[in-house]
């Protein structure tokens, strides 16, 4: 179960071997060169800390607040009401033939998760700057734990979605089976963006100021209030480079069955999310060594 305990045992075993044989747990400290993604073994060794960081985020988030976890519902709920009035009733934006409330909530579900996850992720390293200066642990755990912790809010908002579907008596089709895949893609996208922005935010506080604005831009660059079908056919694949496009349209397909699964959007989105994630990890890794000095 525990890697660290296992390592200690192997060290003990090493001691009984003839002199000259090295114990297992060797740390080499030197200036890092070249490109690296992440130290997988180390992340595994620190998985207890990862769990506690996630759990701390969840526990602390709604401490000393009257509504508590209710905030996870309020944010998407009010956005949905507002969008339904402004875009559904007043602007009469096409909603693929489903009630606009369902149409927008199906998009707000992943979008709210995504925007909260990245803003929390970005804040994580800067707000824990003191910890960075006092102790070593894989720094990647901080933004990742913020992203994972937000899944709790996502789950609560999903319950609201189910209630709304019951209210509209809207049953999902077999497309619902793709949902786990969509959630994975959503988390990977949020992680990729978080890791990039976090590494930048430690050094450039500009990122922190730009966040609200960027998230708003991002919402209009994703099909939250309008359907992708409004985008001209020839630009759709370019548009899908934003991984959230595939994710949001996927949710609509899975939950509302208003359209077939958008495989091409998802394929492009998966590819760009992977690139985002891998480059993000490499960038984070290259910046990691100066975190303690500049944070």
């Amino acid at each position: 179960m525990s890697t660290i305990a296992d390592t200690t045992e192997s060290v003990a075993a090493g001691a009984s071997r003839p002199a000259g044989s090295e114990p297992e747990h060797v740390t080499i400290i030197e200036a890092r060169k070249g490109l690296q993604l992440f130290d997988w073994k180390e992340l595994v060794a620190y998985r207890d800390l990862f769990r506690f960081l996630i759990w701390r985020q969840i526990k602390v988030r709604y401490a000393q607040s009257a509504i508590g976890i209710g905030w996870a519902v309020i944010q998407p709920l009010f956005s949905m009401v507002l969008f339904t009035i402004v875009f559904g009733r007043l602007a009469k934006i096409d909603s693929d033939g489903v009630p606009y409330a369902l149409f927008s909530l199906a998009a707000l579900l992943p979008w709210t998760y995504f925007s909260n996850a990245i803003s929390d992720g970005v804040a994580s390293l800067v707000s824990e700057a003191n910890m960075l200066r006092k102790i070593y642990f894989p720094r990647l755990l901080l933004p990742l734990s913020a992203v994972v912790a937000k899944l709790v809010d996502f789950g609560i908002a999903a319950v609201m979605m189910v209630l709304l579907m019951i209210y509209y008596q809207h049953l999902p089709g077999p497309e619902i089976l793709i949902l786990p895949l969509l959630i994975v893609l959503m988390v990977v996208t949020a992680s990729g963006v978080s890791v990039w922005l976090t590494a930048l935010a430690v050094q450039y506080r500009d990122v922190k100021h730009a966040m609200t604005f960027l998230i708003q831009l991002g919402m209009y660059a994703s099909p939250v209030v309008y359907p992708t079908s409004l985008i001209p056919e020839k630009f759709q694949l370019l548009y899908a480079l934003n991984p959230m496009v595939g994710v949001i349209e996927g949710y609509r397909s899975a939950l509302l069955g208003s359209q077939p699964i958008p495989w091409s959007l998802l394929a492009v989105g998966t590819a760009s999310a992977s690139v985002l994630m891998l480059t993000g990890l490499a960038f984070f890794r290259s910046k990691e060594k100066v975190f303690a000095d500049v944070a």
Binding site: P23, V26, K134, I135, K289
Partner: peptide
Amino acid sequence: VLSRITEPTSGRAVIRGRVSSLLEVGTG
């Protein structure tokens, strides 16, 4: 440097064994 909070500019250190560093009480 020895507790890996910051990276050395040059040179190296090899540590054999499990390290705990206590640069502050109550971190986290």
